[in-house]
């Protein structure tokens, strides 16, 4: 009996040793509990001048300016390229602070409080669907989002060129309009104004006067209702009230779009005509 026990024990021990052996071969690293994507803020002792500036802006305006790209910030299947350090620093100081956030907070405090995105991405270049394709999208390419705004072309923006800077800020408000559109919806009534007459892919084959006749502020606005809405905002932000209204009064569809969009913004505490004159003065008169 005793012997039998010992033999069995021996055999089992033998088997178990083999089992453990084969199991050991398959040891894999258990990684799932590691939070690789935890966002770790840069420790203060590592801050450069731009980090300090971004921190000030965050404290003053609640907007996190992102100039460094990490896989947590940039989605993997599209191609965005970070701005150079010098360009980003100058851009943040001038465009982010002086031309966007400061006047916004001062002149439209309610609108600022409710409608300012919490994250702003600086892009060196533009959106690219392919790492080296030469075609680019002029806009930032990811502004149809709720809380995040971004602008492209920081590397090539000449801050001493007033016309270029003005155009850039106006475009920023265009992009922000997409943000507002996504957040609140431009509404069925707006969509019905030009329904069925959008140019779609052929927008670039049209002329600007043709676009106005067809009821679009720009030919690009003829691409789709989203851009129609944003170019309406852009028009009001770009041109002085009287000039803007002259064009608007020349076309019934433009008039209807203007009335809707102007009210959309006024209801939220933003007078686009006033914004226009503030932006213009800041760029050209200071």
């Amino acid at each position: 009996m005793k012997k039998l026990f010992i033999y069995t024990l021996l055999i089992l021990a033998g088997i178990s040793s083999f089992l453990s052996c084969s199991k050991e071969d398959k040891v894999t690293l258990e990684k799932e509990n590691l939070d690789y994507f935890a966002i770790i803020n840069k420790p203060k002792e590592k801050w450069n001048a731009l980090d300090s500036l971004c921190d000030t802006i965050y404290r003053d305006y609640g907007v996190k300016i992102v100039y460094e790209y990490t896989p947590q910030v940039i989605r993997p299947n599209d191609f965005y390229y970070p701005p150079t350090y010098d360009k980003a620093l100058a851009y943040t100081r001038k465009v982010m602070k002086t031309l966007w956030l400061e006047p916004l907070k001062k002149n439209f405090p309610d609108y600022f409080k409710r409608e300012t995105p919490i994250e702003f991405i600086l892009m060196g270049g533009y959106y690219h669907g392919h790492p080296t394709n030469t075609d680019i999208a002029a806009g930032a390419g990811f502004n149809g989002q709720f809380y995040r705004l971004g602008m492209g072309g920081v590397n090539n923006l000449d801050l001493s060129n007033k016309a270029a800077v003005h155009d850039h800020v106006v475009t920023l408000w265009h992009e922000h309009a997409h943000n507002q559109d996504v957040k609140y919806g431009r509404g069925e009534i707006f969509d019905r104004i030009s329904i069925g007459t959008y140019y779609k892919e052929a927008w670039n084959t049209k002329t600007e006067p043709q676009a106005v006749t067809d009821g679009f502020f720009r030919k690009y606005g003829g691409f789709a209702p989203e851009e129609d809405f944003a170019t309406t905002v852009e028009h009001l932000t770009r041109f002085p009230k009287n000039d803007a209204l002259t064009l608007i009064n020349s076309n019934e569809k433009l008039k209807r779009k203007y009335n809707l969009v102007n009210k959309f913004y006024l209801d939220k505490g933003m007078d686009l005509h006033k914004l226009q004159s503030i932006v213009y003065d800041l760029v050209y008169k200071k």
Binding site: K31, L34, Y36, F37, A38, K42, N48, Y67, E68, Y69, T70, P71, Q72, F79, Y81, P82, P83, T84, Y85, D86, K87, A88, G124, G125, H128, P131, T132, N155
Partner: peptide, 29 residues
């Protein structure tokens, strides 16, 4: 000058040239 970060990714430690630099430029070219 440009910035870099040491990040973590699913594959482990990442050396990330997080600002525009010769490296991001070459990726694009």
């Amino acid at each position: 000058q440009s910035t870099y970060l040491i990040n973590k990714g699913v594959s482990g430690v990442l050396l990330n040239f997080s600002g525009g630099s010769a490296v991001s430029s070459l990726m694009r070219m």
